[in-house]
Amino acid sequence: ELTQDQKALISYIVDAHNKHRIPQDMAKKLLQEQFNTEENFLLLTEMATSHVQVLVEFTKNIPGFQSLDHEDQIALLKGSAVEAMFLRSAQVFSKKLPNGHTEVLEDRIRRSGISEEFITPMFNFYKSIGELQMMQEEHALLTAITILSPDRPYIKDQQAVERLQEPMLEVLRKVCKLQHPHEPQHFARLLGRLTELRTLNHHHAEMLESWRMS
């Protein structure tokens, strides 16, 4: 079912996605630094900055991305960074990390001054991603598809972005059929998560404001 080019695209994107990790020392700090609201706030902010840098490195590897207009590249990244980061965090949370790291991370997020009305939908999203039992190919492709959304604000050449996103969607559709043969709805469910991500993205801007105030 998959053509040679599609297989090459998958392995290329999965490889880039696997390299898409925050530095080891940052991850260690998250699990070791002492624990108070102020510290959690600073650590989560530092981690977010590091995660954006890592996300940009991943995005540079998306075939065709660097051939897009430079300002459109920035508009795409700016419009999708938060969503791609939530998707990546969902993957981390749905993979059982060794000896309780997930619990420590979750606790740190819950006790960093972020309002409960935002934390609940975020962890619901992580749970819904976990339930889909996504394979790494699906995560890598869905992240690329999220970034290559032509309808982000300030995109000048939407067709150019569509031409990159469409083959990715086609490959993801085939991958879902191959990896989830008994779940014809699987691909549709993945796209449904993209809508949920948009809502989270919208709340995130509000949350950031109120978090900074408190």
């Binding site: 940009v56 430079h70 950031l208 978090w211």
Partner: peptide, 21 residues
């Protein structure tokens, strides 16, 4: 903390250089 402008700065710098710089 990374305000939206901060986000754009981080993206511009990362797009220009690579991680090691």
């Amino acid at each position: 903390p990374a305000s939206n402008l901060g986000l754009e700065d981080i993206i511009r710098k990362a797009l220009m250089g690579n991680m090691e710089e």
